[in-house]
Design a protein around this nucleic acid. Structure first.
Length: 326
DNA sequence: AAAAGGTGCAACCGCCGCTTT
DNA sequence: GAAAGCGGCGGTTGCACCTTT
């Protein structure tokens, strides 16, 4: 019955008393609409309907499923919660790295970023950014969109994530004697996290450097193809690490059917990139001396993967850097 | 033990662009 | 071509839970 009335109400060309009556009914229906947290019964009804009828027009779906919810609300509930392939739980290190990298490229394009993190929703990524990343910016007393903070992400946070991913991979391979023989300790990085459950899964390159029809072009990046090297807020110039990182991804799609936005990792370069990040002669020693901090507070301090990337001395050090550059 | 403050997350809101009528 | 409907997106809010005082 509701859907019949709903169809009538969508007729916007009625006049006179009939229109007034429908407006009144419309108001009643609006008032009947449920809001707030979903109940188990509602979840069941929505899930059951979609299982049998598939997704469709959400407004009519809501009515046909007997839900007193807006179509938008149903869509959101399905996409962010009920969908069978939706993944919940902690954002992995690999996913964090991916989010930072993609956000540095696209900004707050959450849905676009989410497309590259299977099972993660734009809402979840947005929440992660707002709660975790912006919290760190707040700790540093700088704007999350400021160049200083972006440089901090590039030069400290992301390399640290890479290092921790690598350390975790080494621990895993070391602990598992039955695992496949691995000659490259960076295998987890090279594969962008295929070593354990719940991580970013990207296509692997074959021996010829092909990624499912996409030819790897080690030298091409958006950075080196358009803009030149620039100095960062730490006063260093050239060879931006983010370029090194983004060198790990290839945008050059030979096949025109390829989605050009899709990040294609160049695993060989990613491996060498991570090598340089943790090497004593590697990135951290190129113009910035992080040794004192590392001696007293090793990067790998264990604990929760998401929040221990920073500590008091990091923040103090970074604030000094920021002050020197103001 | 209780109050206050902080955090994380689910859900809503408003805008925009595309499609349908 | 105009108006209405609809879906998608990013921003924001409300609340439950956790931690600190």
């Amino acid at each position: 019955m509701d859907h019949v009335r709903g169809n009538s109400m969508r007729n916007g060309h009625l006049h006179g008393s009939a229109a007034l009556q429908l407006q009144s009914e419309d108001q009643e229906e609006l008032e009947e609409l449920r809001r707030g947290p979903w109940t188990g019964e509602e979840d069941f009804a929505l899930n059951n309907y979609i299982v049998h009828h598939g997704e469709g027009r959400w407004n009519s779906l809501a009515r046909c499923a007997g839900l007193k919810r807006t179509g938008k609300s149903c869509r959101l509930r399905w996409l962010n919660y009920l969908r069978p392939d939706v993944r919940r739980g902690n954002i992995t290190l690999e996913e964090q790295l991916m989010i930072l990298e993609l956000h540095s490229r696209w900004g707050n394009r959450w849905s676009k970023i989410a497309q590259h993190l299977p099972g993660r929703t734009d809402n979840e990524i947005k929440n992660y950014w707002r709660t975790r990343v912006q919290k760190h910016a707040k700790q540093l007393k700088c704007d999350v969109n400021s160049k200083q903070f972006k440089d901090t992400m590039r030069y400290l946070w992301m390399p640290r994530l890479v290092e921790r991913i690598q350390a975790a991979a080494n621990t895993t391979t070391g602990a598992s004697s039955s695992s496949t023989t691995t000659t490259n300790n960076n295998s987890a990085i090279n594969n962008m996290g295929i070593a354990s459950a719940g991580q970013v899964v990207l296509p692997q390159a074959n021996a010829n450097g092909n990624l499912g029809g996409v030819q790897i072009n080690p030298s091409f990046t958006p950075e080196n193809s358009s803009t030149g090297a620039s100095s960062d807020s730490f006063g260093r110039s050239q060879l931006s690490p983010v370029s090194e990182l983004t060198d790990c991804y290839n945008y050059s799609a030979v096949n025109q059917n390829q989605n050009l936005d899709y990040l294609q990792p160049n695993y060989q370069q990613l491996g060498s990139f991570t090598e340089s990040l943790i090497s004593p002669s590697g990135y951290f020693n190129q113009g910035l001396d992080f040794q004192p901090m590392e001696q007293t507070n090793p990067w790998l301090d264990g604990g929760d993967a998401s929040d221990n990337l920073w500590n008091v001395e990091d923040i103090w050090f970074l604030q000094q850097q920021f002050n020197n550059n103001i």
